[in-house]
Amino acid sequence: MSLRTLRSGLLLAALSIGLCANALAQEKVRFAYLKTTNIIPFYYASEKGYFKAEGIDLEMIPVQNGPAAAAAVASGSAQLGDAAPTPIIVARSQNQPFKFVIGVDWERTPDKLYDILIASKRSGVKSIKELAGKTVLMNAPGSLCELAWHEWLGKNGMTIKDVKVLVTPFPQYQAMLELGTADAACSAEPFTTGIKLSKVEPVVLGRGFIAEEKQRYLIEGLFATDAWIAKNKKTIASIKKALTRALTELRTDKKALAAILKSEYRLPTPVAEAMPMDLNPQLDVDPADLEPMLAGMLKYGMVKPGLTAADLVADLR
């Protein structure tokens, strides 16, 4: 064996050891997520290797709803979950040790709101008060939509008993509104945009899940168990850093955004183009961000008393 061959061999071995060490240094995090458009930065950061650059090996596990994400985190199949606050607040009240660590979507009156409550043109409904006796849709009991119906009907002097509630998955909304089997719905993106572009010609009855709430409140976020959070504050900070980098680039790179919408979501082009998206979310969560939602859930009996907003948010200092 020549000296040159030996040297090359040693160099290769050193490189391999270095690569292996790098791979070993990566913190494995399994993330159970809902395929909302708020996950776009995760797809982008994964594709660009930003999580890896922060020492995070993020495995993305799609799940179908918030309770499934909660079950995945509780069982240890995932360390991080993505959900609306309502199922996590309910889970925490049932002694599941969940806390929010990262926020991915928010609302606040009047500057940051989604069109939530819509009525079909054929229903003739133009305001919340006209909903009395009408059939309204929500996606699941105990969901953000249940809270939204309580809130908006309550603000108009009505209760949820004044309407006929049908629990229906989001994808069925458009057909039911168009065919007249329902009059109004509590919707979410991308379904709201799909309905707006359809023959339903919807009238917007309410903007925001919580009626006229001026304080910022979380509507989707990442959660984990108390035990995992206690040991992984640095990991959470690294994930935030990678997300911030992704969001900064996505705000200017519309081509990359469109490419992810096409490859990962495969939404019809008109819906993808018209859909509102927040690429400037506040990633840090504060207990105050959960207060309006928790107060609403307590008021309408959606959660047992005794829970405070501080119980729902991790202290990452």
């Binding site: 596990i61 998955p169 994808p171 019809p268």
Partner: peptide
């Protein structure tokens, strides 16, 4: 996270 059931749900959720 895969299989025919996942595709059924995924295509419905993305309006396909």
């Amino acid at each position: 996270r895969d299989g025919l059931g996942f595709v059924l749900n995924d295509t419905a959720m993305t309006l396909r």
